[in-house]
């Protein structure tokens, strides 16, 4: 029983340590972002990998989530005879919560894990050491473009998700179940406002993007130089990024737009 106390202490210290070194790493990335030479080419390549290649999965998932929402809310609302607010409910649910969170989780799985695995493999094959030998800062050359790409890609993909989700809800609600299309669109436009909902949506996606960019590159950069190390770093990226996205989501929702 008495050993429990130092065990808790050690755990908390490790946790605070890792929080601190995340912050330090974030500061290194930030400092690297301001330091020339700028390499837009590398960022474009990274945006292609994590952005363009994620478009299809984001759009398909958005459409599917929207259809499910349309179906479910239609079933509940039709019991009260108020199907005409379907657009409003689906719109607010998608724009405020589901689009940023789902997109962050999908991008974490689709692109964040790939970033960690790539940087981790570079650690294993001593490519980063090779860069250091050439007096090129690996944070500047490898980490910065990848984390920036994740940050920039997130709001764009969130917008795709929200639009395709609304389209999916329209298809399920209006075309399949026969809610009036005009009413759907009007109540959607009436309910979703710019300052609270849309800005909140993009604020969330930018915060999630920077969070994922930091976690994915940090885990890769600090991974143990073994194949096991790469696999556990990739797993940790997905776990840590997903959980912190969900926790941050609560606080952003609580602080913004009430």
């Amino acid at each position: 029983m008495i050993e429990l106390i130092p065990a808790i202490g050690r755990y908390v210290r490790q946790w605070v340590d890792s929080l601190g070194s995340h912050a330090q790493f974030a500061a290194r990335i930030g400092a690297a972002a301001l330091r020339p030479p700028f390499r837009p080419r590398r960022s474009v390549e990274a945006m292609y990998d994590s952005g363009v290649l994620s478009v299809v999965i984001i759009c398909v998932s958005g459409f599917a989530v929207g259809m499910v929402l349309g179906l479910l809310f239609y079933l509940s609302l039709s019991r009260f005879g108020s199907q005409e607010v379907l657009g409003a409910i689906v719109g607010i649910a998608l724009v405020r919560e589901l689009a940023p969170v789902f997109t962050a989780l999908l991008v974490t799985g689709r692109a964040g894990s790939a970033v960690t695995a790539e940087i981790g493999t570079m650690v294993v094959t001593e490519e980063l050491d090779g860069l250091r030998m050439l007096s090129i800062d690996p944070v500047h050359f490898v980490v910065l473009p990848k984390s920036m790409a994740l940050l920039f890609v997130m709001p764009i993909l969130t917008a795709f998700f929200a639009l395709f989700g609304i389209a999916g809800a329209y298809v399920a609600g209006c075309i399949v179940l026969g809610v009036d299309g005009g009413t759907f669109v009007t109540s959607l436009i009436d309910a979703v406002d710019f300052e609270n909902d849309i800005m909140g949506c993009f604020l969330k996606s930018v915060i999630f993007g920077s969070l994922l960019g930091l976690v994915a590159t940090y885990r890769g950069y600090h991974c143990e130089p073994t194949s096991r190390g790469v696999s556990s770093a990739t797993t940790q990226t997905v776990v840590v990024a997903s959980v912190s996205v969900l926790i941050f989501d609560y606080f952003i929702t609580a602080l913004w737009g009430f």
């Binding site: 292609y48 993909l157 436009i189 309910a191 710019f194 909902d197």
Partner: peptide, 28 residues
């Protein structure tokens, strides 16, 4: 080719964000 894809991606994304902001959010 990669430049083209990323360019199209960013433009479409900005378009999607603008659509969300103006036609859906612009209820004021």
């Amino acid at each position: 080719k990669l430049d083209w894809f990323v360019g199209i991606f960013v433009l479409l994304g900005l378009g999607a964000m603008a659509t969300l902001s103006i036609s859906i959010g612009g209820a004021t």
